[in-house]
């Protein structure tokens, strides 16, 4: 069954017809030609497809496109605003990736995570769960980024790359 939906992706409005079975991830990659979000497991277990959906980080592989009519979506390709996002510059400077396949998801996830921390959201390792100010030390960053797997295992560079932006 096909339905027509509208999506705003990286600032551009799109009207497209999707099979009800199509995920946001496949709609972006196969129909809109935006392959910045990656398909690493299609199973909600790796984070490579992380998108900002109405400002929040989510997994594109578990979201049906028809259920997100009118959504505002941002990918790593859309984080750039003429120039690279500070996270993107920091990832390059810290060599926080190797193969690059998980990288757009890592960066989008980090952007969403910084927003969450800015809103005072706690994590599983927060020392004082009631505290409204989040201090993003390495342990906090690693816990909050644990949903983005990196098989090249660049974590020892990813965490400092994010920390540098977080502490700015």
């Amino acid at each position: 069954m096909d339905l027509e939906i509208e999506l705003r992706v990286d600032g551009t409005e799109h009207r497209l017809t999707v099979d009800t079975r199509t995920t946001l991830l496949d709609a972006l990659r196969e129909q809109l030609g935006n392959t910045s979000p990656k398909k690493g497991c299609d199973h909600g277990q790796c984070g490579a497809c992380t998108l900002l959906l109405d400002g929040r980080r989510i997994l594109g592989c578990l979201a049906l496109a028809v259920a997100h009519q009118g959504a505002d979506i941002v990918t790593a390709a859309g984080l750039t605003d003429g120039e690279l996002h500070p996270l993107q510059r920091s990832f390059i400077a810290h060599d926080a990736f190797q193969c690059g396949y998980c990288t757009p998801g890592q960066i989008v996830s980090a952007a969403g995570m910084l927003q969450e921390a800015g809103n005072g959201w706690p994590s599983a390792v927060s020392k004082d769960p009631g505290a409204t100010d989040v201090v993003l030390d390495d342990e906090e960053i690693a816990e909050r980024m644990s949903g983005n797997l990196c098989r090249c295992a660049a974590y020892a560079n990813i965490v400092p790359a994010i920390a540098e932006v977080a502490h700015r």
Partner: peptide, 22 residues
């Protein structure tokens, strides 16, 4: 967080930030 920390901790120990948002 204040009244039922066990609930907040349980939620935060599950899944990932992305999944918890959905």
């Amino acid at each position: 967080r204040r009244r039922y920390p066990v609930l907040s901790q349980a939620l935060l120990s599950g899944a990932s930030g992305q999944l918890r948002n959905l």
